[in-house]
Design a protein around this nucleic acid. Structure first.
Lengths: 126, 126
DNA sequence: TAACTAATGACAACGAAATGTCATTTTGTA
DNA sequence: TACAAAATGACATTTCGTTGTCATTAGTTA
């Protein structure tokens, strides 16, 4: 597992991340990458994502009430949030942050992270 | 299913909500209510929560990367958010809201709801 | 108190997401 | 080009949260 080989499948998954430009689920990755590599197995998508995570290229995003999404580490390194379209179930990147969250934290609590998820309809569904 | 009977089990679950004052998982409800009613089955907790939901007393809360939590409808009716302690995995209510989220929404998107989850250490774990 | 039946709780079973397995394919190297 | 092994993909299996089932228990009413 130390060595890595460049396969069509891995490249297709990488390309899906690049072209989508938004957090993707395994299912979405499978559908997108399958356009490049027919007969792509879901198992392979899981492995590709795992490998990209170990390489530090991709990070997981936990979302409320749904399976994990994955996004490029370059995107994730910039602090941002997400918009969830309730119609098509896709997630989009939101740039910016309301800020001033320290004021909301109760006495004695230590704030480390925060996660904001806007929801509604995306431009395609609106 | 139309009629309802007042049972120790249902009352214990209700009491758990009242005394906890924070969103609870099924597991937490089970543990808390079991202090009142020994040999309480998890199945019964699921049914009690379901019934309280149908009565409009309790609502479900989806959280990132975890099973649902439940909280009193009286609490949920006031707009609020949550703090997640990464050490004890408990959720707490946060009163207040950063606001100004409309400015973050991309052109053409329709904002309907939002959900903010602060995370870090609670006062007990800090 | 007796009787009716809702409610309980132990167990099985489900659905979804994720992982294990392994024969086969494919990549990189000699 | 041929070989060794990494990678694939089909399938089985696990895990977790939740629900179905049903004999038994325990509220409620007469």
């Amino acid at each position: 597992m130390t060595l890595q080989r460049t396969t069509k499948q891995l490249q297709a998954v990488q390309a899906a991340f690049e072209t989508a430009g938004r957090p993707l689920s395994i299912e979405e990755l499978h559908a997108l990458a399958a356009e490049q590599v027919t007969s792509l197995g879901v198992r392979t998508v899981y492995r590709a994502v795992r490998r990209l995570q170990e390489l530090g290229d991709v990070v997981a995003v936990s979302v409320p009430g749904g399976s994990d999404r994955y996004e490029l580490a370059t995107v994730a390194s910039h602090h941002h949030h997400h918009f969830h379209c309730t119609a098509c179930d896709r997630f989009f990147d939101i740039h910016g942050c309301p800020g001033g969250l320290h004021k909301l934290v109760p006495e004695g609590f230590q704030l480390e992270h925060h996660e904001l998820t806007l929801s509604g309809l995306c431009d395609s569904c609106a």
